[in-house]
């Protein structure tokens, strides 16, 4: 992987993040807002996986017996953290949809702009 390839990945993930944010701010349906937020988390995962292939921080961090292991360690670490992020994202979607169902039971609307009973 060359630096320019890494940059492609990072720019792609930046676009994904920004579009996800835009979707989260403008979409009306709660489910779509939640999925847009998932896109933002996916962007973070792409960053992790791509950057961990590069080891910019150097080899001495990993507390490994030999620096030649550092590359594999870094790649594994990046993907492991990404796995954690995926698990967290799934947990958040589950709770989010449950909250939506609880809300819908009382107001019969899945739209964010109709959540306006709390004011003053």
């Amino acid at each position: 992987m060359t630096p320019s390839e890494l940059m492609q990945y990072l720019l792609f993930s930046a676009m994904l993040f920004v579009l996800g944010l835009f979707g989260a701010l403008t979409r009306r349906n709660t489910v779509i807002v939640l999925l847009s937020i998932e896109l933002m988390l996916n962007a973070a995962n792409i960053n992790l996986v791509a950057l961990s292939r590069f080891l910019p921080g150097g080899a001495e961090n990993a507390r490994l017996p030999h620096p030649s292991l550092a590359g594999d360690f870094s790649a594994t670490l990046g993907q492991t953290v990404a796995l954690f992020t995926i698990a967290v994202a799934a947990a958040e979607v589950a709770v989010g949809l449950a909250a939506l169902i609880a809300f819908y039971r009382l107001k019969a609307s899945p739209n964010v702009d109709e959540m306006d009973s709390l004011k003053r």
Binding site: P3, F54, P56
Partner: peptide, 14 residues
Amino acid sequence: TRFARSPFASDEPV
């Protein structure tokens, strides 16, 4: 950013 690849970095599938 000018990314510098460490000589130990690996592209092997994990």
